[in-house]
Design a protein around this nucleic acid. Structure first.
Length: 213
DNA sequence: CTAGTGATTCCCT
DNA sequence: GGGAATCACTAGC
């Protein structure tokens, strides 16, 4: 059974629109990760929008740095960042170039290559948890720093691609506050998810932490 | 189910 | 030096 017979990527101009249009339009799309060990395909069920301009929650808010450089580049590319000393999370960059907007891929359902994903996510109690959360998603797909800057709209022999496929029906899309975002950036209801989908991560507000002595 | 906390490294002030 | 777009685990309801 081939879950993803059509490997046509989304056209780059899909991402050359306001990030608040792109984010909900990504739900239901298939992310195809090709590894030496085999393919993994994931259906997106939860995303968050980050605007490079005037969004305190965005990594690009304080301007261009070596870390966020990819966000300022061409749309349709993958921005991978390292966080909390342990985890990677991945975004798809939106246009126009220089605005540094991006969509964080927060959760999804593994529809192909679950055996491989399970070997990377040994603590998952069931398959719904394999990619339930942004760092879990990246871990399940084997995505790390090495894929930062990858073009997700390219054809051919690519490690990571976002397929055209079909979007989730608009009447099944919900939105609300972003998860884990602190301060002023928390006010925007820029988290989008597929209603009643068991792979969507639970909402948790940002918790300020005191450093251990 | 919710709430709290330790883990661990990098980035930016 | 302080905190981070998180996860795993525990306690308690």
């Amino acid at each position: 059974m081939i879950a993803t017979p059509d490997r046509t990527p989304l056209p780059r101009n899909f991402f050359d629109r306001p990030v608040l249009e792109v984010a909900p339009d990504l739900l239901g799309r298939i992310l195809l990760r090709t590894t030496p060990d085999g393919p993994i395909a994931l259906r997106l069920t939860e995303v968050e929008a980050y605007d490079g301009q005037n969004d305190p929650g965005s990594h690009a808010f304080r301007g261009r740095t070596t870390r966020n450089e990819v966000m300022f580049g061409a749309p349709g590319h993958v921005y991978v960042y390292f966080t909390y000393g342990m985890w990677f999370c991945m975004n798809l960059v939106c246009g126009p170039e220089g605005r540094a907007s991006a969509v964080l891929l927060r959760a999804g359902e593994i529809i192909e290559g679950a055996e491989l994903a399970r070997t990377r996510r040994l603590s998952a109690r069931n398959d719904k948890e394999l990619a339930k959360g942004p760092a879990r998603l990246a871990t399940a797909l084997g995505v790390d720093r090495a894929l930062n800057g990858t073009d997700a709209c390219a054809t051919g022999d690519t490690p990571l691609r976002i397929l055209a496929g079909t979007r989730a029906p608009s009447d099944q899309v919900r939105n609300g506050p972003r998860t884990g975002v602190s301060g002023e950036g928390a006010v925007h209801p820029w988290r989008y998810w597929v209603d009643n989908d068991p792979t969507v991560s639970p909402y948790r507000a940002h918790m300020p932490r005191r450093r251990r002595s």
